[in-house]
Amino acid sequence: MGEDFSDLVLARSGDDAAFTRLVAPLRAELHAHCYRMLGSVHDADDALQDALVRAWRGLARFEGRGTLRAWVYTVATRTCLDLLEGRARRALPVDLGPSSERAVVGDAPLADVAWLGPYPDAALPAGPGARYEQREAVELAFVAALQHLAPNQRAALVLFEVLGFTVAEIATIMDTSTTSVNSALARARRVVAQKVPSPSQQRTLRKIEDARLREIVTGYATALERGDTEALVALLTEDVTWSMPPIPHWYHGLKAVTDFAVEVPLARCGSWRHVPTTANGQPAVALYLRNEGAEAYTAWSVTVLTLRGDLISEITSFLGADHFAHFGLPPVHDA
């Protein structure tokens, strides 16, 4: 086994420091696993903490027949499945209804929807998975597609395609049959194939020079800061979409997106400042807003950009200052 046997012995005897050392190399990948399953960094935090407590308390049941990694993933997956029981799936505005053709001014947040949230790249583990690279496996399109799957299908797909477990191992993890796992995988693959565009963002980004990528990210943010509609539009595809969870309305197509941009963020929202970041394996911008009469620029949104070629095809602005702490960003911008 790859684990330190002496730490395993100590952990079984009640040494929590030894247990901490055992699971430390797995924490990042377990956290990303919980995020894929649950669609929320906050929920992933809670699930990981709960799973590690369960694993610590149940360590005596680990007989060493498989790897400790597989056993801990069993605990984490079952923890996530327990949390998903009876819960509504997490959504983006595009899941709720058709796009709006004109800007909706004064759009109110929907508090009764469980919204998908962004994932900070700094939390990602290093190294590729079995089929999807780690960054591909947290891209917005992929995680959003997972939310359309039944929990058992979601778990089977992630465990097989992302983490490289065998069907037999997954059957053990999920306490089911290999037939059930294969059936769940087949259904999950059909849904994901329909909802996840090709190529992945990772393949797209690899074809763009770093300097050009910085131009795109900075160009988007500075166009907002300067109120420059022409500069913003030049960065967008004809079929661009813009959504802002927890705001329910969203926009599709250059005409509708331009109308929204002119009427709301460029005209009615005050003054902007930005900090470049990355989220879900994609370029992102943390935006700070200063309303008229206010002294400070305060946290407003983490905006994730999806690219096609070297243009922006999707803008997903996750509104709310609560996202900023997960990215290690301050609530106030020192302008």
Rank of each mutant, 00 (worst) to 15 (best):
M1Q: 02
G2H: 00
F5H: 10
V9L: 14
R12K: 14
A18F: 09
A24I: 04
A24F: 09
P25A: 14
R27C: 06
L30Y: 07
H33S: 15
Y35F: 15
Y35E: 09
R36A: 15
L38T: 15
G39W: 04
G39V: 12
V41G: 09
D43H: 14
D46L: 13
D46M: 11
W56L: 13
R65K: 04
T74V: 00
V75E: 05
T77K: 06
C80H: 11
L81G: 09
D82Q: 15
G86W: 13
R87F: 03
R87Q: 12
R87I: 08
A88H: 07
R90V: 13
V94C: 03
L96M: 09
G97S: 03
V104D: 07
V105P: 13
A108S: 11
P109F: 05
A111H: 13
A111N: 10
V113R: 10
W115T: 08
L116E: 12
G127N: 01
P128W: 05
A130E: 15
R131T: 15
Y132R: 13
R135G: 07
E136K: 09
E139T: 04
L140D: 02
F142W: 07
H148E: 15
A155Y: 04
L157M: 04
T166F: 03
T172P: 00
S177K: 08
N182C: 08
V192K: 05
V192A: 08
Q194C: 06
P197M: 05
Q201A: 08
Q201L: 07
L205N: 11
K207R: 11
I208E: 06
R212G: 07
E215Y: 05
I216P: 00
V217S: 10
A221M: 01
L224T: 01
L224H: 09
E225G: 04
G227C: 07
D228I: 05
L235H: 03
E238Q: 12
P245Q: 04
I247P: 00
H249S: 15
H249F: 07
H249P: 00
Y251W: 04
H252P: 00
L254P: 00
K255T: 05
A256C: 06
D259T: 07
V264T: 11
W272N: 02
H274I: 11
T277M: 05
T278N: 09
A279C: 07
G281D: 11
Q282Y: 02
P283C: 14
V285H: 05
E295I: 08
A299H: 01
A299F: 01
S301C: 03
L307R: 09
I312S: 01
E314N: 06
T316I: 02
L319S: 00
G328C: 07
P330F: 10
P330C: 02
H333T: 01
